[in-house]
Structures are given as C-alpha cells and as structure tokens.
Design a protein around this nucleic acid. Structure first.
Lengths: 274, 274
DNA sequence: AATGGGTGGTTACTGTAATAGTTACTAAGG
DNA sequence: CCTTAGTAACTATTACAGTAACCACCCATT
C-alpha cells in the first residue's frame, strides 16, 4: 500500500485521490458516503476529491436512484492515459533541452559521479541504453545491482564481454581475472570500468560508501582506452592460460613470476600498482 | 518557457530546479554565484537547489580552481532516466490496479463521459489504443481534434472505415454520408460513434459545450451494434448510389423518396428520426 | 408522537510542509 | 568600497491532510 501510494504520487495524484481511486476499483459503483467509508477519506473531503478525479477523467459519475454514484476508469485505460501524457511531456522536454544543450559544446569533458548509490544508478542508466556492446571490468560487490539490466541488454542482442572479479561469475560472457585469488584476499579498493558501444566509458575507484567516485566521459580517446584496457586484459588472461596450461593456483603464481621478471618492479611495487 | 516549466513540473521538479537546470544547459560549468545570476534564482537559495539537483543526479559538481563548479546531466541521459523511472512506476501501478480491478466485475457496464473536451480526450485515448480496426461515424466539428491520432493509427496498420459528415473529407477511407447536404443545412445535434477493434464502442450526442454526453462500453452486444450500424449505413450508401447513378443532388432526393415510400413515415417523421 | 441513529452531503477551520521570494549578514580580494 | 562568493534567517502563499460542526432526510423503536 505504501509503495503504490508513493508511485501514484509520482504520477501527480495526492493521497486522497489515490485512496479514492483504489477503493473505487475494488468496489463500484458507490456514492460519496460509502466511498468515504471504504477509503478512509473523511466524508467532508470526499466530494472535492471526487471532483478533482472527475476533472482528470479518472473517475466518472452518474445519477443513481437515490444519490450520485461514482465509478473508476479502467486501469488499462488509466495507464494508457498516463503513458500518453508522459510521452508527450518527455518529448517536449527532450526537444527543448537538446536545443539548449548546444551540441557545439565540448564533448570531451569529464563528469564525476560520487557515492555508491549514484554510481550504481548511473551505471544502470548507461547499461540500459547500450545497443551494441558492453565492456565490463567489474567486481562481485557491484554485480548484483547491475545484473538485471545486463540480462536485459543481452536479451536485446547486446554483446557483453569483460573481466569479473569474483568467485561466482553470473555471465558466461565474462572471464574471471587470472589473479582473482590474490585480489580477493587483498580486498583493496576496486577499480571498475563500464564501456558502452564505443561511445562512452565510466571508470573509477569504488572504495566504501560515499567516498567512491567514478568518472564518465565520451571523450573518444578515453573511451577507446577503456575498451582496449579490458580487451588487453582479456588477451593477457588468454595468453597466460595458453602458456602454462597448469592448474589454477600454479597458474596464478606463474603470472606473478612473469610480471615480476619482465616489469622490473618488486613484488611490493607490483601489488601497489594494481 | 512557460510551457517547458509546466512540463518539467510534471516530471517532479520545482521551478527553481527547472530554471537552474535549463540555465546550466546553456552555460556550464559555472559556480553557484554565476548560475544564480543567469537563472534568476536568488543567490541565497541557489545552493539548496543545486544540492537537490545533485541528489537527483541531474547536476554534478566539481572542485574548480577557485570555487565549486556545476554542470548538468546530458539531456539525452536525463530523458532516459525519467523514462526508466516512469516506466517502472507505471508498471507497478499497472499490476497493482489490475489486481484490484477484479476482472470478474461486470464488463457490460456503461461509462458516461461528459463535456466536449473530455469526450475528445477519451476518443483520442481509444483511437491511440486501436490495433486492428476503427469504425467511425463522425462530424467535421470533431474531426480536427482526432485527425492526428487517426493518421497515426493508419500508419501502424489499423484499418479505418466509416461515415463522415462534412464537406472536406480528410480520409479516403471514409465515405461522406448520402444525405450530407440536408444534414449540414439542418445543423441539429450530432450523433457520433467510434468503435475500436470489435472490443469497445463510444457513442453519443454532441450538442454544444458541456451538455454533450457520450457513453462508452465493452458490452459485446452494443459493440456489435455500433460496428454494424456503421457498416449498414455504408452499405445503404453504396446501394443507393448504384441504384441511381444520378448526380449528387438528385441522388439525395431519391434517397428521401425511397425512405418515405418504404418506411410508412411522413417526411417530418423521418427527419426527426435521424 | 417523540427520539435517535444511520444515511447523504456541506461549510469552515487548523496545522504542516513545500515552494517562492526577501533581507541581512560575513568575508575575501583587487 | 565594490564585486565576488556564500550563508542564515525570515515571510507569504499554497497545497495537502485532517478535524469539527452543521443540515436534512428517512425510518425504526420507545
């Protein structure tokens, strides 16, 4: 009940109007007096409320034998009504704001998003817009909040690829990182990347809580870098597996050794590097 | 400006928030002070407003050299955001209200819609829902308000047919009534019918202003009657033309004569009958 | 016949929160 | 001392939720 009231408030109805409509749905036609009883709306207010709903074409009235009786619009029609209203409004806002947002404006700027919740929301927004490809560099901490939208994306034909930091990989399209055990045991900050359609990339550090901060850009260089970064990491994973053919634990050790050998860094430096 | 503010209010923003966002779109990044100047929002309030917009992820902030600077979310993303919000909300409301509106409830009831504006709105709602067929019995007075939605319907493959009372018939799918000249000269009340997909029918009398009243129903009998009514009238039109082959004016006269002859009514009665 | 409770509806008021707008203050820096 | 930059506190209006009181009718009970 709480939930539906909040949702319907977003659609522009107030609490009394919502209660009246919902009550009418479960019992109609009724007169004001009875609706007041069944809905919990004070009898002294019910006629105003019904008047408003009548004006919005959400309830209709009719002359009964004794009193005026009311009945609700069909839910299906109400939804259609709302859809068409919001569709129109969104279209207006769309054209107006696009005009303002002079496209000559620099497109290679950076947008910073702060706070875990905001980051998740923004990520989902990007994912739901993807048309062709999503490249991920993602930890298990964030995955649960993005999984639904990723599923949707795959369903509509979007190609998913990338690297996953976690034991239970929910997507066959993703590859678990070759150094996963080490990473998980260290549990430092998590670097995350989401690249969409070779068009935009979100990248940043997730630590804890509201200090987390990621950056979004459409700058072509950075977008390219983000996608390639993931691509390269995937390839290194692949090469390393091919080169060793060993069991998982041995393999991780091998990778560590190779890194140390060829990078010129100490073990400590390499870890901090990550 | 008025229009866009009203529209964006529907989306859940207040006037200051709207002005701030729109100003930011045309000039960013800026600090609070300058945004206050360009948007007309009092400087004393601008930071609250920006705080709210930040929480809604509609603007973002960043540490500039001297002051904190703000920039807006891309319009395209904002629209996506809103769409997904309203999509979710509408889905919730849809499932909840459908559950309440026990489908066992009688589906053969009548819904009365009063007032010209309401009638037009409701008609458009029905038309925009049509999937297969729209049968019309419509006057030129109402046509301009429905024409757009009818065009849309035809575009998506809906079959249109029916009778039109007016000189300038905008749809080749419609037939002008055989007694059009007489009707137009008399200018009495206008009977109107809209039947959708053999599923629902809207029928009633349009006089003038708020006394107009039409009735909507899904009652199968009435729906059938509405569609057949139009169908039969079309056929009579067709037969009459075939039987006479005369010029239009003569033809109308012929129709009148036939009616009189076979119905047993006087001319007067027939006219009142219409 | 009187009474009182249920039905059906109206008018007017109160308290609170959000919104829009104002006034006045601090404080840095050229 | 003027512009820039930001804060604190106040007022007025409105929408919203909730309450109190009243009228008028009908009808069953005492």
């Amino acid at each position: 009940m709480e939930q539906i009231i909040n949702d319907m408030k977003i659609l522009g109805l107030n609490e009394y109007e919502i209660k009246a409509y919902l009550s009418l749905l479960s019992e109609y036609p009724v007169n004001g007096y009875n609706l007041s009883k069944s809905s919990g709306i004070p009898r002294s207010r019910i006629y105003e409320v019904l008047e408003n709903l009548k004006n919005k074409q959400i309830v209709f009235e009719e002359q009964g034998e004794k009193a005026v009786i009311y009945y609700p619009i069909e839910p299906a029609l109400l939804i259609e009504k709302m859809k068409s209203t919001f569709g129109r409004v969104l279209e207006n806002v769309d054209t107006y704001t696009r005009k303002l947002y002079s496209s000559k404006k620099i497109d290679n700027n950076l947008t910073v998003i702060k706070g875990t919740k905001n980051i998740i929301d923004f990520s989902n927004l990007l994912i739901s817009q993807a048309v062709e490809r999503i490249s991920l560099f993602l930890w298990d901490d964030e995955m649960p909040f993005l999984q639904n939208n990723l599923d949707e994306a795959i369903k509509r034909g979007v190609v998913l690829k990338g690297i996953y930091f976690g034991q239970n990989n929910p997507f066959k399209e993703l590859v678990i990182h070759r150094r996963i055990n080490r990473y998980l045991s260290e549990k430092k900050e998590r670097h995350m990347i989401i690249a969409i359609d070779t068009k935009e990339v979100l990248s940043g550090i997730i630590s804890r809580g509201d200090e987390s901060q990621v950056t979004w850009t459409k700058d072509r260089g950075f977008v390219r870098m983000g996608e390639d970064y993931i691509e390269h990491d995937l390839m290194i994973n692949l090469y390393a597996y091919r080169l060793t053919g060993k069991e998982k634990d041995d393999f991780e050790q091998f990778v560590d050794e190779v890194r140390k050998e060829y990078s010129g860094f100490t073990e400590e430096q390499i870890r901090n590097f990550q």
